[in-house]
């Protein structure tokens, strides 16, 4: 099995539950047409609970596609994805949506906050979608934002916030539902280096305190090195696997 392979190959000690298991994943764009693009070509990957993983690779290697597959923003062509012990291949669109809402948090390069909603409104929206009472949702969102140091920016619109602040809001929105996994697509790509460091510190903190699983796509070596593991991709496949310099388990040893 994949898990065993990985264990053997990289010598990873299996002491935590795998939270994400990908096996035999393929993604082809414009399937069946002459301009078919085979973006993911049979990819296997396992992420355990509490892992903080970076995916690196040159442009067009399929990083973002892979992330979209994991986040179920796009349909895969074939293969299996199991998140939090749920095999998602049989989920209907409705189930998939609630699955996405409950299990996955997204952080994007362009933040993708609703421009017409204030910070706190952006953050509480996933809770409202879960059907949580508006008042409760608002309180939770405020709490979280305060925790993330955004207590004085609660009612600002995204356009009134700096990039780093926007990304904090985005992080808060991703965190608020306590997802099984947070996916970050170049989360610091749009930020300067100081802000980027701040945001990465934040990610690290979340990862360590909450045992929050994070998968980040980046082409920034420095960012990748903040993670426990770095997965290198080329041509839609994982080329090799690397441990981050600050791997907590390494440090723990």
């Amino acid at each position: 099995m994949v898990i065993t392979d990985m264990k053997e190959e990289y010598g990873i000690i299996e002491d935590r539950e795998p939270i994400l298991i990908i096996s035999g994943l393929h993604k082809r764009y414009s399937e069946g047409k002459s301009n078919e693009v085979h973006a993911i070509r049979g990819l296997d990957l396992t992420v355990r609970k509490g892992d903080m993983m970076a995916i690196m690779g040159p442009s067009g290697c399929g990083k973002t596609t892979l992330l979209n597959m994991i986040g179920h923003l796009d349909r895969r062509s074939e293969g299996k994805i199991i998140i939090d012990n749920i095999d998602t291949s049989r989920l209907s669109d409705g189930k998939m949506t609630s699955f996405r809402r409950d299990k996955i948090g997204f952080i994007f390069q362009l933040f993708n906050l609703f421009p017409f909603l204030s910070a706190v409104e952006n953050v509480e929206t996933p809770l409202l979608l879960k059907g949580i009472k508006a008042g409760v949702a608002r309180e939770q969102a405020k709490m979280l934002l305060r925790e993330l140091g955004m207590g004085d920016r609660l009612y600002h619109l995204p356009s009134e916030l700096s990039g780093g602040q926007q990304q904090r809001v985005a992080v808060a929105r991703a965190l608020i539902t306590d997802p099984a996994i947070i996916l970050g697509d170049e989360p610091t790509g749009d930020l300067d280096s100081t802000t980027s460091t701040d945001v990465m510190k934040l990610f690290r903190r979340i990862n360590q305190i909450n045992q929050q699983t994070l998968v980040l796509v980046t082409h920034n070596r420095w960012i990748a090195e903040q993670c426990d593991y770095i997965v290198h991709m080329t041509d839609g496949k994982i080329s090799h696997f690397e441990q981050g310099p600050f791997n907590k388990e390494e440090n723990a040893k």
Binding site: G71, L73, D93, G94, T97, S98, R100, R101, D102, F106, N112, L113, F114, P115, T125, P126, L129, K130, R173, T177
Partner: peptide
């Protein structure tokens, strides 16, 4: 479209 994408990403069902 983009905003709709975000909505879908954070878990808006189609009906909503």
């Amino acid at each position: 479209k983009r905003e709709i994408g975000m909505m879908r990403a954070i878990g808006f069902p189609r009906t909503q």
